[in-house]
Simulated assay, not measured.
Amino acid sequence: MRPIDLWRYEVRRAGWTALLTPPVATAALVLIALLDGGADTDRNLVAALEMALPLAAGVGAASLVGRDPAVELQLTVPTAYRSTLLRRLAVTFGWAALLAVLLVAGLLATGWWPESRGVLSGQLIWLAPTLWLAGLGFLGGAAFRSPAAAGGLVATVWIVDQVFAGLQEHYWFRLVYLFATTRGAVPEDWTANRVTLVTTALALGVLGWVLLGRSERLLRGEAE
């Protein structure tokens, strides 16, 4: 199979949840921000970048494990099944990243990009939380072998960060807080927060990769 055909197939297998959720969620929040108007329009648009897009990417990543029929057959082919899932994760994240770049371009063109963030370093506004929630969704899928359970985990963490933003009085919570740009309590900790999120996101992805290497877990999940 040619590489282009392979990736085209993986895009189809990623599923509608992974492909539709990011644009729908982001467009909804952008529309709300524009209709609301007022002095906080720029902040609300950045919130779409930092809040809506990462949640959608995380739910999409959580939907990747447990969707394939006859997993036992895929485990017999030369290409490792977890490598297949990793390609689908790349498709999910790449699609969310493309949407993020388009939204960033729109914010720059309209002058709504936050002046406190440079164009390059400012990409961490969406990149850090998107990587983190996608890594969590991937790990949740590998651990639970259930898109619903893994998606619920992602949504729960997202809601906890929304509801308990006051926990930022603790330094450790500020380091892993997902919305440090729009709701951060200590702006000086922003860079440390973004670096911590990216680093721990990679760790979550590695843990998911390790769990997916245990074929008996996937087969047991298929049987259930």
Score class of each variant (00 low, 15 high):
residue 224 E to Y: 03
residue 118 G to K: 07
residue 59 V to W: 06
residue 209 W to L: 13
residue 83 S to V: 04
residue 33 A to L: 02
residue 119 V to Y: 12
residue 106 G to M: 01
residue 182 T to S: 14
residue 83 S to N: 06
residue 105 A to R: 08
residue 130 T to H: 15
residue 168 Q to I: 05
residue 124 L to M: 11
residue 28 A to G: 07
residue 53 L to F: 03
residue 82 R to G: 00
residue 102 L to M: 10
residue 118 G to S: 09
residue 121 S to P: 12
residue 25 A to F: 13
residue 28 A to K: 09
residue 203 A to R: 13
residue 19 L to T: 02
residue 38 G to R: 12
residue 191 T to I: 11
residue 62 A to S: 06
residue 10 E to C: 03
residue 54 P to V: 02
residue 166 G to V: 14
residue 104 V to G: 06
residue 217 R to S: 09
residue 31 L to Y: 05
residue 138 F to G: 14
residue 178 L to Y: 05
residue 208 G to Y: 05
residue 115 E to F: 01
residue 196 T to E: 00
residue 23 P to H: 08
residue 66 G to E: 02
residue 119 V to M: 10
residue 206 V to S: 15
residue 130 T to R: 08
residue 204 L to H: 13
residue 43 R to W: 04
residue 56 A to F: 09
residue 146 S to W: 09
residue 143 A to C: 12
residue 133 L to T: 07
residue 87 R to T: 01
residue 194 R to H: 12
residue 9 Y to C: 13
residue 28 A to N: 08
residue 63 S to W: 00
residue 174 R to T: 03
residue 2 R to W: 09
residue 182 T to N: 07
residue 100 A to V: 01
residue 106 G to C: 06
residue 93 F to A: 10
residue 208 G to W: 07
residue 107 L to D: 05
residue 30 V to I: 14
residue 84 T to P: 01
residue 10 E to Q: 11
residue 22 P to Q: 10
residue 125 I to P: 12
residue 81 Y to L: 00
residue 62 A to R: 04
residue 204 L to I: 09
residue 218 L to S: 13
residue 159 I to V: 15
residue 139 L to A: 14
residue 201 A to G: 06
residue 155 A to R: 15
residue 6 L to P: 09
residue 33 A to M: 03
residue 142 A to T: 13
residue 33 A to R: 03
residue 106 G to A: 02
residue 36 D to V: 11
residue 54 P to K: 12
residue 135 G to E: 09
residue 86 L to P: 01
residue 198 V to P: 10
residue 161 D to M: 15
residue 75 L to R: 08
residue 131 L to I: 09
residue 107 L to C: 04
residue 224 E to C: 02
residue 150 A to M: 11
residue 184 G to E: 08
residue 191 T to K: 14
residue 161 D to P: 12
residue 64 L to I: 03
residue 148 A to L: 14
residue 164 F to N: 05
residue 115 E to Q: 06
residue 157 V to I: 15
residue 210 V to G: 08
residue 14 A to I: 02
residue 193 N to A: 01
residue 68 D to M: 01
residue 193 N to M: 02
residue 2 R to Q: 06
residue 209 W to D: 03
residue 99 L to N: 11
residue 155 A to S: 15
residue 88 R to H: 00
residue 1 M to D: 07
residue 176 V to P: 00
residue 142 A to I: 11
residue 186 V to I: 07
residue 25 A to G: 08
residue 21 T to Y: 12
residue 63 S to I: 01
residue 190 W to P: 00
residue 128 A to V: 04
residue 28 A to P: 05
residue 15 G to F: 05
residue 57 A to Q: 08
residue 2 R to K: 12
residue 215 S to M: 12
residue 155 A to N: 10
residue 213 G to A: 02
residue 44 N to F: 00
residue 55 L to E: 01
residue 117 R to A: 11
residue 199 T to I: 10
residue 79 T to Y: 00
residue 51 M to F: 03
residue 71 V to I: 05
residue 112 W to V: 03
residue 162 Q to P: 12
residue 54 P to N: 01
